[in-house]
């Protein structure tokens, strides 16, 4: 599996390099390191969300509520910050992680305990969490001038010339990499996606593992709740509306199979970067940003077509000569 996946990631990486090359032909400054750092920074949030979604999709589930979770959590931390500017930001980040975790755990419990398909559960919580944002905020916005300078400034501060937001993304990528390749939980997540029945016989608690992946995607969404609000400095009910599908798009482009069991951290990151590059490139090469949606749509369709070619199973290959050929 490793060699095959590596092949796919290398392939995606090559596509990204070609893309950057093409953009550079129109706008030579695009490929310079400072700009690429900027693109990475702009894509950080999507990468974190895509990684959270990835672990869910690997177990043959889906989390449609991530964007609503992000919106709710973002509103909670924004309101906390507006009301009590003295609360240190690291503590607010912990709050964001916890709120996200709780919302993810609700999804996970419904999937685990009641065995409701995840697409139904998260379709429900998608509307509930966004509605709840309205309830706690009374429909009001939290604006930039209500947020403390630290709240806004933290992710913009540079460390070794790279913004903190990017460092957070790098840290999250590293954590997910460890999770998926170095822990028993990571193995169990793959195993469930490959063969749920066999997983039960192998002593894996499928329900509990699904619960955990929803907690993980919830925490990722919660963290991004803070990051999103402090980046775009406005908290409202409309934050990240419809973004759940962008997250899934990043996963699909990254080669994560919606049927579960196939996908990697590198793929999710590259898939998100691909979308990030397109949205960054359009303005600089003078294409209306209104083109972005159609382009990413086409990219998704192309990615599925190409992925399906790789996944297609072959017959038994009984004939000796065919085997040799």
């Amino acid at each position: 599996m490793k060699a095959f996946l590596k092949y796919r990631e290398v392939w995606l990486l090559a596509a990204i390099v070609v893309l950057i090359g093409l953009i550079s032909m129109r706008f030579p400054g695009f490929a310079n390191p400072a700009n690429l750092r900027q693109v990475f920074n702009d894509t950080s949030i999507l990468m974190i969300l895509a990684l959270g979604q990835m672990v869910v999709i690997l177990t043959r589930s889906i989390d449609l509520s991530m964007a609503s979770n992000l919106c709710f959590t973002g509103m909670v931390v924004a309101m906390l910050n507006a009301a009590h500017p003295a609360i240190p930001i690291p503590l607010l980040i912990v709050v964001a992680l916890l709120v996200g975790l709780v919302l993810g755990a609700i999804n996970g419990l419904l999937v685990w305990r009641l065995n409701i398909p995840s697409i139904v559960v998260t379709l429900g919580t998608l509307t509930i969490y966004r509605g709840a944002t309205f309830v706690i905020s009374g429909g009001a916005w939290v604006n930039a001038d209500q947020m403390s300078p630290d709240f806004i400034g933290l992710q913009r501060a540079a460390f070794l010339g790279i913004p903190v937001l990017s460092w957070i993304a790098i840290l999250v990528i590293a954590l997910f990499f460890l999770l998926m390749t170095r822990t028993a939980l990571g193995r169990s997540i793959y195993a469930i996606g490959v063969n749920p029945t066999a997983s039960i016989y192998a002593g894996i608690d499928v329900g509990r593992t699904k619960f955990i992946v929803f907690c993980i995607s919830g925490m990722a969404a919660g963290l991004c709740g803070y990051l999103w609000i402090s980046r775009y400095v406005i908290a409202s009910v409309e934050v990240a509306n419809g973004y759940e599908l962008n997250i899934i798009a990043a996963c699909v482009i990254g080669g994560i199979s919606i049927a579960g069991g196939i996908g990697s951290v590198g793929g999710a990151v590259l898939g998100a970067l691909f979308l990030g590059i397109i949205s960054n490139a359009l303005p600089v090469i003078n294409i209306s940003p209104f083109w972005q949606m159609a382009i990413s749509g086409s990219a998704i369709i192309l990615a599925v077509v190409l992925n399906a070619r790789g996944e297609r199973r072959q017959g038994r290959i009984i004939l000796k000569k065919a085997e040799a050929a």
Binding site: A184, R187, S188, Y190, A191, N195, A198, S199, A202, I204
Partner: peptide, 21 residues
């Protein structure tokens, strides 16, 4: 069991030690 109980996409070592690596 019959053929269904192992994980086709995992390696032999992973199959042997899944759950108690």
């Amino acid at each position: 069991h019959q053929e269904t109980v192992l994980f086709d996409d995992l390696t032999v070592a992973e199959n042997i030690f899944l759950g108690h690596a």
